[in-house]
Design a protein around this nucleic acid. Structure first.
Lengths: 211, 211
DNA sequence: TTCACGCTGTGTAATATTTCACAATTAAAG
DNA sequence: CTTTAATTGTGAAATATTACACAGCGTGAA
């Protein structure tokens, strides 16, 4: 029934994350069923697209009653989440880094920032927002010790590439990069860049085109 | 020569922004020519793709010498930038908002954050990082007064949709949304959502899939 | 000049992603 | 039970995006 291991596209993974967040809201509000066209609005997509996405998680929609919210959440979790909680490192504890620390701290079930890294002497050694800050030369050690799989990179642009390489060398498997640099690597590490400058310039461009 | 007004895709606009940032670096370093395959590395793309992108800005590449850096920068600016500097509003002056304010302040030539908005009484009325913070009910007034075209939305998820609607009503033409909510609207306003939670969950997912 | 090389510009092919459209299924009403 | 209305799952079409491949041109060397 479940066609095992057809690779799921990045776009679908992104949408699944969005669906799940909304489904959890629905659950909180006591709604226990949902239709594909309701989810479609969330991503400015079509109902058919939603159904295709959900098929890939082994969907269990019911004709004319839609999908069961709690089951969908479970199915998506089975796909997106690892069985054990994922440990995340935050690299760079400047203004942006601290904001991200606050943003990602709290009620996350399946991942958590467990270590900070920064070379500034006034930061490393300290505990910031409840997390210990280490210097970069402890990276490999801590990554191993805490089984950290993923890093959030919030260092200045000039330091991004070198730092990313250090992360890769330390055994990190994925990087969420906030520095305005697209990082290239020949390794199999997954790098997702959230380029805020690019996004703002794009928004400014289309502010004039969408009359 | 320049085939007027074939619509340029969002993806191309994003890449152009990235090319330009790199080109400015090259210029600073005294390099005055660049090949399409050099730019291709930046976006993990192919040389052909870069050449297609550059064609759309009216490219002027020269066989066997590549593109002239300063001319490319000018051509891209002619496409991406407006003639006058764009005024930006930042909505939500929490931790993330302040970090974004720092991030986007400084040496930007073609846009600038000129006004902050937040309803917290300890913030509105004050000047933060050199920018005045207003309360949300002054929005329409200030947007008109300062000719603000674009807003950066950094409010909590619960407030995102309502605030976005207020922005649209006030005449904003584009929104860069940092709240973890996908905002739907029937208006022609351009909305770009930078969904950090989605991005992190995606990174975590692929940290396990990329062997 | 002539040749060889390397790069651009672009038609065409290939791939990825989304949408359409409809048979099958379920629920509910009569 | 039969009919009606609504929704799912999915093949096939449509669209969007990327990559290939090569003609043509400029450059530099002989």
């Amino acid at each position: 029934m479940n066609k095992l291991k057809q690779k799921i596209s990045e776009k679908t993974i992104e949408r699944l994350s969005i669906y799940r967040r909304y489904l959890k809201d629905l659950q909180k509000n006591g709604k226990d069923r949902v239709y594909s066209h309701e989810l479609a609005q969330l991503v400015s997509g079509t109902a058919a697209q939603v159904r295709r996405d959900l098929m890939q998680v082994g969907s269990n929609g019911c004709s004319s009653k839609g999908y069961e919210v709690s089951m969908l959440i479970d199915e998506i979790a089975k796909l997106l989440d690892c069985s054990e909680k994922q440990n995340i490192a935050l690299i760079g504890v400047g203004n942006l880094g601290r904001a991200l620390l606050g943003y990602f701290s709290g009620s996350r079930e399946n991942y958590d920032i467990v270590a900070l890294f920064d070379n500034a002497p006034d930061k490393c050694g300290r505990v910031i927002c409840g997390k210990r800050c280490y210097s970069m030369n402890q990276l490999t050690e801590i990554v191993k010790e805490q089984k950290i799989s993923t890093a959030i990179l919030a260092v200045p642009a000039e330091a991004a590439e070198e730092t990313a390489q250090n992360l890769i060398d330390a055994g990190i498997k994925a990087i969420l990069n906030f520095a305005p640099r697209h990082i290239t690597t020949r390794s199999r590490v997954f790098i997702e860049t959230l380029d805020m400058t690019k996004a703002l310039e794009k928004a400014i461009y289309f502010s004039r085109k969408n009359t």
